[in-house]
Amino acid sequence: MKCQQCDNPAVFHITELESGSVRELHLCEDHARTYLNQNEDAGGGSEGGGAPKKGVGQSAGGPLGVGQTADDLAALDQRVCEMCGITFFEFRNQGRLGCPHDYIQFEKELEPLIANIHGATEHTGRRPSRAVPAGADPAVGTDGLTEVIGLRRGMKEAIASEDYEKASENRDAIRGIEDRWVPPLPSGQSPTP
């Protein structure tokens, strides 16, 4: 679906409730930002709709804003996770991250936010007993497996652009990674197709 204001793909789907009637907006990221900011400036937007869902990401505006210009923040908002494709802007609006890799991709940005929430930036609790497979970097935990999220996205794009060679390369890469990381089902049961 295209953005209602330009030719870019619509990634924000907004439903506005205005005095009983429903208005649907489909916008690209840039136009969504303009639209949402405009609503925020107007004091939370029209009744019930315009203001984005308040999430934990919004409190990031505080610690993140310190010493940063509006341009810095705008550039930060544009940053994209190479695995799941979420932008920092989307996270700030929804308060939910897109995939486990975001903790690595946005580590610098998340650090002050996490310190603010927990008063700590280092896990000291339990750890999975299973070691990472040979060849994987233990310093990034299970990120080697999370890579398949990006590969799956790439496969979909390759199929859409009819690049079947690339699609099958990605499919094989996903299988290879999952075979190394995902333990077999207990008692030798085979998974349903």
Binding site: G55, V56, P100, I114, H123, R130, G141, T142, P183, L185
Partner: peptide, 29 residues
């Protein structure tokens, strides 16, 4: 522990168990 034997939980040595919301990250408890 039993589930962890058969499910690869998302985990990072510094951040712990990785969750959708940063308010649950770490122990997730």
């Amino acid at each position: 522990d039993q589930i962890e034997k058969v499910v690869p939980y998302a985990f990072h040595p510094r951040w712990g168990y990785l969750t959708a919301c940063p308010t649950n990250v770490g122990t997730g408890i």
